[in-house]
Write a protein that binds this DNA or RNA. Structure first.
Lengths: 202, 202
DNA sequence: CTTATTTTGCATCGATCGATGCAGAAACGA
DNA sequence: TCGTTTCTGCATCGATCGATGCAAAATAAG
């Protein structure tokens, strides 16, 4: 092979792509897709619009990549939660993760997957649909995990995994809205606790 | 007194203010504050921008009045629910009202109070803060109603009315998000049912 | 009929929106 | 050094944003 790996041809980038994407994610998280202007984004990213378009494509693509980064960063608690040994552990971890992630002092309050683009104009339809699909993906993964718990006998045989997953994601979304409104983590963790007190819900 | 009541001086309006406000409310409900442009709004209202500004002030004032109308129309279930004789009746009516209002086929899905302006840019900060205050007002009224239930012996003396109100409004907000994502009323009503199955929550 | 008052239609404002064209700068291999 | 490739800085694009100025139109009062 030979000259694989190593600096690519051409002028090297003057900024770190991951850093810039992280900052863009924070802007989308705080202001939503429509509320985040290119000026907001590029100033936070520390780059020009030219560099942004050359690197990320356009605003919607930037949002898509920022959402990916959110899933792998602040939203990674979802995937980790699915590895909990019991269905109750999964539900508990998801709600605790939601509370923690939506109320961190140093981060925007709320959940990017909820407040990023809930109701939008026509130009933001792509971002809105993408976010709805993102939420549905979380729901589906939780549902499949609960189905496995039923199959394994961890949950009673008459449990409806879809309903249980809808319940958990609904409480999670509610917590995210409350966090966006400024409600604190202690109060929201109590909500999470009581929502699972009579688990398995049926 | 004499000539009170009767047509006001000047050229009469060529449109019905209530009709126009209703239509504006529907546009804000569907697209959110930022996603609803003046063109969207005035076309739906059937009037010119000149008439809109002369009658309602500006976009933010129009939103304020549309939110008022929402409270007295689709959102009136909250006030009605507070008149239920028991705390459980109040909670049940609020969640059932949320499900019904956020999933009507002929109306935008979701809740204007949630998706109208959850995360916004700087120019929509007024609308966002107003909506947060609106949600907080609902919470406060439910909390006061539950406090009364404690005082009356309808709820156990050791019940925390604030916590109970936060629980109900959190589930309500979660339902609103799910409805905005397209989840149907039957499934959401089941969520509402199970959320209150072990009432009073503690 | 005249005057006062209010609304409407039309044109348009400056600002901001997302997005590009282009030339120069900075790296590469030959 | 040269040619190639890629990225950056600057200027700017057309479209849309929310918002107004102004004169004609439509009513009531005198």
């Amino acid at each position: 092979m030979g000259t694989r790996q190593g600096r690519p041809v051409g002028r090297p980038r003057g900024f770190d792509v991951d850093d810039a994407l992280e900052r863009a994610m924070l802007v989308f998280w705080e202001h939503g897709y429509e509320g985040a202007s290119l000026v907001n984004l590029t100033e936070a990213m520390g780059i020009s619009t030219t560099s942004m378009y050359a690197t990320f494509g356009n605003k919607e693509e930037l949002f898509r990549k920022a959402l990916e980064r959110y899933s792998e960063g602040p939203g990674a608690y979802v995937t980790r939660a699915l590895d909990e040994p019991t269905a109750l552990g999964v539900a508990t971890a998801i709600l605790a993760g939601t509370v923690r992630t939506t109320t961190r002092a140093a981060r925007p309050h709320g959940c990017l997957g909820v407040q990023g683009a809930l109701a939008t104009g026509d130009t933001a339809r792509g971002a809105r649909d993408r976010l709805a699909a993102w939420r549905n993906d979380v729901y589906s993964r939780v549902r499949e995990r609960f189905q496995r718990a039923v199959d394994d006998g961890d949950l009673p045989a008459d449990t409806d995994p879809a309903f249980l997953a809808r319940y958990v994601t609904t409480v999670s979304a509610g917590i995210a809205v409350q966090a966006a409104s400024g409600v604190g983590s202690d109060e929201l963790q109590e909500i999470a606790d009581v929502a699972l007190r009579h688990w398995p819900i049926h």
